[in-house]
């Protein structure tokens, strides 16, 4: 089953500021994209737009599988994982409670859960309250979501930043497995991911485009 995602001339605004103007991008199964660019250029905003958290000012984001166009709501709720800066862990609950909740909420099966715990070596963390975890451990726990509920498109915002060298290798292996299974990764990064990726460098639109966008 192949998946492809097309960004057709999209413009994104944050507040009244135009961040991205007329961006075209096409990704297919097995592709990995590194989004690079200055801080504040709109990498996170672009990831969130692809995740369907808001619709672009102009242009269209569409996804296709073997049967043709995927309904946007189905695309958002069945195909996408979004890993943001925050790890979505409630400080007073244990790692196991949080992972079990995510598994149930995303309707994952038990096997995947066990596999994720084993793969990321989470069993020593399971009974700890998440406020006791270090930043790297938290990130590892949130990576588990990617394995618990298999989804085709991974949107990762600085996935490697809190991880140490060993864990980076682990995360890189996880991502490469996903790509070889025909998945797609779009990651906002400062340092390139440790494997072959296509680099998309984002820059600010010029003043003219900025001013023109003010009147819409």
């Amino acid at each position: 089953m192949s998946l492809s995602v097309t960004l057709d001339k999209i413009s994104l605004k944050k507040g009244y500021n135009l961040l991205i103007s007329n961006l075209n991008l096409e990704v297919g199964s097995g592709d990995a994209i590194s989004l690079t660019g200055q801080n504040g250029v709109g990498k996170t905003t672009l990831l969130r737009a692809i995740a369907g958290f808001f619709s672009p000012q102009t242009g269209k984001i569409s996804a296709f599988d073997d049967h043709g166009l995927i309904d946007p709501i189905r695309f958002r709720t069945e195909f996408i994982h979004y890993l943001g800066h925050h790890d979505a862990l409630s400080p007073t609950r244990t790692t196991e409670q949080e992972l079990r909740f995510q598994a149930q909420y995303l309707n994952a099966n038990e096997n995947n859960y066990q596999f994720a715990v084993q793969y990321l070596n989470l069993s020593p963390l399971l009974d700890l309250e998440t406020r006791l975890l270090s930043a790297g451990q938290k990130r590892r726990v949130s990576l588990a979501r990617l394995l618990i509920a298999p989804r085709r498109l991974w949107l990762l915002d600085e996935p490697m930043s809190p991880l140490d060298a060993h864990q980076r290798d682990l995360a890189a292996r996880l991502m490469q497995d996903h790509l070889s299974d025909g998945g797609i990764i779009i990651a906002a990064v400062h340092d390139p991911l440790p494997f072959e990726t296509r680099i998309v460098h984002l820059t600010r639109p010029d003043l003219k485009a900025q001013e023109a966008a003010l009147v819409d």
């Binding site: 507040g15 009244y16 500021n17 135009l18 200055q38 600010r204 003043l207 900025q210 001013e211 003010l214």
Partner: peptide, 13 residues
């Protein structure tokens, strides 16, 4: 005001 703020923010970039 809106115009000023937006263009000013862009100039910082």
């Amino acid at each position: 005001t809106r115009r000023y703020r937006t263009l000013r923010a862009r100039l910082s970039f």
